[in-house]
């Protein structure tokens, strides 16, 4: 806020005269503008007005990624879930089904090991692993750095398998077209309301491992209701990558994206 006039406008100048009631006036100017380098001094320090978003650098790089992908006609999907929901297994089955039909690429992130990349190789897609070490999420820069390696002339779909984590990856835009939230039926139907940030941002949810439903007390209707509450109009798939139940709808959906 501008201290001079109390307004919220941070980019203007003041030049005005003051009239005083004691018989004379002494006009003087106070030109000032409040841009990024607006500053005032204390005795031994200087206060700089920065007003800058912390993740603006990531947002810039994500925008660059998005433009790069759009130029080449590639649709990128950011898959996010807790560890163990079945992202990699679903991707294995998905790549097998799309092999020879749609050119696919995968960037997969984990804190350590290239186990996921190994599992995904040999299914017609170019696969690269990012080991994030201490980080609990992927960031736009490291993902974008791999684009030239994984994306070829015939690539249409890029799957970005994020680090298994239901919270942090949500905060980092990678330049993907949209996020897909995965939730396995073993995790419980209340996860969407317990971890709303992901489910409110992702337009698509996949409920995985439905072959286990007979062994669980999972309430599918309550889960769908929770998803609707957090994200009205969310697109929801129910499937088992293991038995293949529900996979047709998912594959058909992907084919329509490209």
């Amino acid at each position: 806020m501008c201290d001079e006039c109390g307004c919220g406008d941070v980019d203007h100048t003041h030049e005005h005269d003051h009239d005083h009631p004691h018989g004379h006036s002494h006009p003087h100017d106070h030109p000032h503008s409040h841009d990024d380098d607006h500053q005032h001094t204390h005795d031994d320090s200087l206060v700089l007005s920065v007003r800058e978003k912390v993740l603006s650098r990531n947002a810039e790089l994500a925008a660059r990624n998005r433009a790069w992908l759009a130029e080449r006609g590639v649709t990128a999907i950011n898959l996010i879930s807790a560890p163990g929901t079945g992202k990699t297994f679903l991707l294995e089955r998905t790549l097998e089904r799309l092999q020879g039909k749609i050119g696919c690429a995968v960037i997969t992130g984990d804190q350590q090991t290239d186990n996921d990349a190994k599992r995904l190789e040999g299914k017609g897609a170019t696969v690269r692993q990012i080991e994030t070490q201490s980080a609990c999420h992927l960031e736009a820069q490291r993902v974008g750095d791999l684009f030239e390696e994984v994306i070829g002339d015939d690539t249409k779909l890029l799957f970005i398998e994020n680090v298994g984590n239901l919270v942090c990856p949500t905060a980092f835009d990678l330049g993907e077209h949209f996020k897909v939230a995965l939730l396995s039926v073993t995790e419980g139907e209340d996860k969407p309301v317990k971890y709303p940030s992901l489910f409110s941002l992702a337009p698509v949810a996949i409920l995985t491992k439905i072959d286990l439903l007979p062994h669980l007390d999972f309430d599918m209707e309550a889960c769908r209701e929770n998803l609707r509450k957090i994200h009205p109009g969310m697109f929801v798939f129910e499937l088992s990558a293991k038995t293949g139940d529900g996979m047709d709808a998912w594959i058909e959906y992907l084919q329509k994206l490209v």
Binding site: S45, V47, R51, K53, V54
Partner: peptide, 10 residues
């Protein structure tokens, strides 16, 4: 999620 101001030592 912003950096509002920075007080730098002179």
């Amino acid at each position: 999620l912003m950096i509002e101001t920075i007080e730098v030592d002179r």
